[in-house]
Design a protein around this nucleic acid. Structure first.
Lengths: 143, 143
DNA sequence: CCATTTAATGCAACTCAGTTGCAAATGAGT
DNA sequence: ACTCATTTGCAACTGAGTTGCATTAAATGG
């Protein structure tokens, strides 16, 4: 697992540093996408400078290790990208983000090809990418 | 049209003030949703305090006159709500927001009942609301 | 295993959207 | 017109996120 993280960093021409290992490890172990603050809190014991964390998240995102999810309360959430994801998701496919209204966790789901694209009234609109945000209760917070 | 605006404000227990009339008028006339800054710029000639505009937009949103759309670059866009909307949209229905990558305008589209809801792998997920964000080129900015 | 180079880190200071407190101004009902 | 609650505008503040720079640490080559 450790060597996995080291490999990922090497494959993206990034030096292996304690901060990067901790952050990536945290995100790989998390079932849900995490915000800057979530990660900050989770790694509170380690002395983690906020600027360093911002930069680490940005570098990971630029390199494609992470992808950003914009939320309704205008935060970014970060989740590990498809090919590195142990959970079997494929983020290269169009996918939906499910946000739990209770625990605020975000989960990613692939969208089956079966479901048709949204039909637009005016053919002049040319859709290139599509993001779907679902709200509700996750299994853990199910009433 | 003016009397329309006055009516809307009265119906929501809001005093009719120059600022509110200007802002609401601007949004009613706009084909696309607008940000705080868009509105600020559009009404530049009028002396419009930024705090007053923030408060006006918040009050309108609380009262249901406007609805907020979160964008990927973490701005809020404001659009006039369904029943007040002259363009025939029905925002009470689930609807999608189309963001033009060129001009950054946002358009709202109803989603036909025909299109099935996203099937989730785990039945424990209970979807309450759904937001769909489309990116691409609008008819005006079509290549 | 040490030296060199290049990138990463941490700190301080800064920016900018958005908020808060408060005094002055204004709208609506009497 | 008078009164009172609401709205407005200003100034000061907050907090997320950024920038510059000096220090430190990781990788590479001898």
């Amino acid at each position: 697992m450790e060597s996995n993280i080291t490999d990922i960093l090497h494959q993206h021409d990034l030096k292996v540093t304690p901060v990067r290992v901790q952050v990536l490890n945290q995100l790989l172990q998390s079932a849900a996408a995490m915000s800057h603050q979530d990660i900050s809190t989770a790694l509170a014991d380690a002395t983690l400078d906020k600027v360093t964390l911002y930069r680490t998240l940005n570098v990971f995102t630029e390199k494609g290790i992470l992808h950003k999810i914009p939320t309704e309360d205008r935060n970014w959430l970060y989740a590990v990208s498809p090919e590195l994801d142990q959970t079997g998701h494929d983020h290269a496919q169009p996918h939906a983000h499910f946000v739990c209204d209770v625990c605020d966790k975000v989960f990613c789901f692939p969208i089956p090809h079966a479901s048709a694209p949204i039909p637009l009234p005016d053919p002049g609109f040319e859709v290139k990418t599509q993001e779907i945000l679902l709200h509700g209760n996750c299994p853990t917070c199910h009433e």
